[in-house]
Nucleic acid binder design. Structure first.
Length: 349
DNA sequence: TACGAAATAT
DNA sequence: GATATTTCGT
């Protein structure tokens, strides 16, 4: 009788404890999103969870959590957090966009390509100084945020405060566009660059497209010809003849390429089994790292500077969920480009 | 005026 | 060293 009672009591306690812990975990999942901002908070909750678990009579390990439990020991890298990311990922619509974003922000699932993210991170950081959504926000938000960033920077004050989120607030006053110094650097966010690439694609490649055309196609308010021109110049520089300096050491990365809409893109990694169909998303290239300067333009793709932004990847159709149509037109796999385009840029080399 | 290339700045 | 801006010649 008494035993019974205490049993019930015990069970109740257990149950409540379990619920509490669940709630805590839930909380932690949410907080984890803001890990950067609230590290201590996260830590606190984690500790609380652990404390609870400890308090919870003996069934700690197996009973309450029917689910995989890696959440307790780490400060929450795995388990629920991941799930959270995954769900968010699923829920949002334009996946390649996000995978791009994901890659770009280098904070996606730790399982597949952590080194990839490392390779990117350095330049990413620099990008982030300018306009970066918090990399730890859930994808949806990040996407939105980046959109907004882009739009913002593209619209009214595109160059007024590109470092809104206070990279280090270093130059609010450094914007000397008044005094006649150099203008604020325009940061080519991934989205911006994607638009650029799309425009490029529409216009037939970097060597036929002209800055003005590109700018018009991009339809970015405040974007100037000069900026596009500069970007194009850089893009061209990186896309042509990267051969000689680097021998053939990284051929592992560079051997499989296909021409996609006049742009060189790496072939999907067939061995992974995912995305065998085509070159629709940048994630197909996870093994080859993804830079914001995704698709390569017509000239043979041979070699990219290993830490350049101009690494091969796929053009991602921005915004619109329908990506495939222009991206996917695989014309041929030979480095030969339409001679017409080629003539344009061969000129002097 | 638009463009590409080169010089220069960050 | 990479990237963006400015300058210069066409």
């Amino acid at each position: 009788m008494i035993k019974n009672l205490s049993n019930m009591d015990y069970n109740q306690k257990r149950e409540r404890c379990g619920q509490y812990i669940e709630a805590l975990e839930e909380e932690r999942r949410k907080i984890h999103v803001f890990q950067r901002e609230l590290p201590l908070c996260l830590d606190l909750v984690t500790q609380a969870i652990e404390a609870c678990k400890r308090e919870m009579p003996e069934m700690t390990t197996e009973n309450v959590y029917g689910q995989p439990e890696c959440s307790e020991q780490t400060t929450g890298e795995c388990g629920p957090v991941l799930e959270q990311f995954l769900t968010i990922k699923d829920s949002s619509t334009s996946n390649e966009e996000e995978e791009e974003l994901d890659d770009e922000h280098g904070n996606h699932d730790p399982d597949n390509d952590s080194e990839d993210k490392n390779t990117k991170s350095d330049w990413l950081k620099s990008v982030q100084l300018w306009n970066q959504p918090d990399p730890l926000l859930p994808k949806e938000e990040r996407l939105q945020q980046e959109m907004m960033e882009t739009v913002k920077s593209d619209h009214e004050n595109m160059r007024k405060d590109p470092m809104v989120n206070g990279a280090e607030g270093r130059k609010r006053e450094a914007e000397k566009d008044v005094g006649g110094g150099r203008k604020q650097r325009r940061c080519w966010s991934s989205q911006l660059h994607r638009r650029f690439l799309n425009a490029l694609q529409h216009l037939g490649g970097p060597h036929v497209a002209t800055p003005k055309q590109i700018r018009e196609l991009m339809k970015i308010d405040g974007l100037t010809n000069d900026e596009v021109k500069s970007h194009l110049q850089k893009y061209r520089l990186h896309t042509r003849r990267p051969r000689q300096t680097v021998p053939n050491n990284e051929n592992s990365q560079t051997q499989h390429f296909v021409v996609v809409g006049g742009l060189w893109v790496p072939q999907p990694d067939y061995s992974t089994g995912k995305n065998t169909g085509g070159v629709t998303t940048s994630s197909t290239t996870t093994t080859t790292t993804t830079g914001i300067f995704g698709a390569m333009a017509a000239p043979p793709p041979p070699q990219w500077p290993s830490h350049s932004n101009f690494r091969p990847s796929i053009i991602a159709e921005e915004g619109s969920g329908s990506h495939s149509e222009e991206v996917v037109v695989v014309r041929c796999s030979s480095p030969a480009m339409s001679s017409s385009t080629r003539n344009h840029y061969v000129k002097n080399n």
